[in-house]
């Protein structure tokens, strides 16, 4: 029953989709088609992400990350968080479980937010792809602006989140 409850939104979405199939079969077929496509896409890139995650979780010693990306890590922590995020691949929600591991290992909230921002918009594979399609002046300008923006946004968030709120967030990933 609790298992079923975890999936209540999934079941609701499936119910809506089934309703669409009955009401408009051609639209329904298109939805089924696209859903199957994105399902296969996720399925294809998620296993290695989670295996790498599991390995990192087991093998990276807590102290090591704390000393490199902890709350007092300054500039080197910022650079490390940016690199960790931009050498990644996959959509943004792939970054959340990694951020959870970072918090579990004691990384500072500012660095976690820099990591999320870097993953969202500074990814190197995407940068190369963007350069190919939109030109290097577009992609380089956007990358540099975004880097400034990511650091600024991370600074604002870590300033505005109180210590209590931060403790509550970190407690989720103990």
């Amino acid at each position: 029953m609790t298992q079923l409850l975890r999936y209540k939104w999934v079941l609701a979405a499936i119910a809506v989709d089934v309703g669409v199939v009955i009401w408009n079969p051609s639209l329904g077929a298109r939805i089924a088609d696209r859903t199957a496509d994105s399902f296969l896409e996720m399925l294809s890139f998620l296993p290695p992400i989670f295996i790498i995650l599991g390995l990192l979780d087991t093998w990276v010693p807590r102290e090591k990350v704390v000393s490199h990306m902890g709350p007092g890590s300054g500039f080197s922590g910022l650079i490390l968080a940016t690199m960790l995020g931009s050498f990644a691949a996959g959509p943004l929600y792939g970054a959340f479980p990694v951020a959870a591991v970072m918090m579990k290992k004691g990384a500072g909230y500012f660095n976690v937010m820099v990591f999320i921002g870097a993953w969202s918009t500074l990814k190197v594979p995407m940068f190369l792809f963007e350069t190919q399609f939109l030109g290097s002046s577009f992609s380089i300008t956007r990358w540099l602006c975004s880097f400034v923006g990511v650091v600024f946004i991370a600074a604002v968030i870590s300033r505005l989140i109180t210590d209590d709120e931060q403790q509550a967030i970190y407690a989720k990933h103990k």
């Binding site: 809506v16 989709d17 089924a32 859903t35 994105s38 399902f39």
Partner: peptide, 10 residues
């Protein structure tokens, strides 16, 4: 995934 499927179809 279900939301993406519906969005891409519409």
């Amino acid at each position: 995934i279900l939301l993406i499927g519906a969005t891409l179809a519409v």
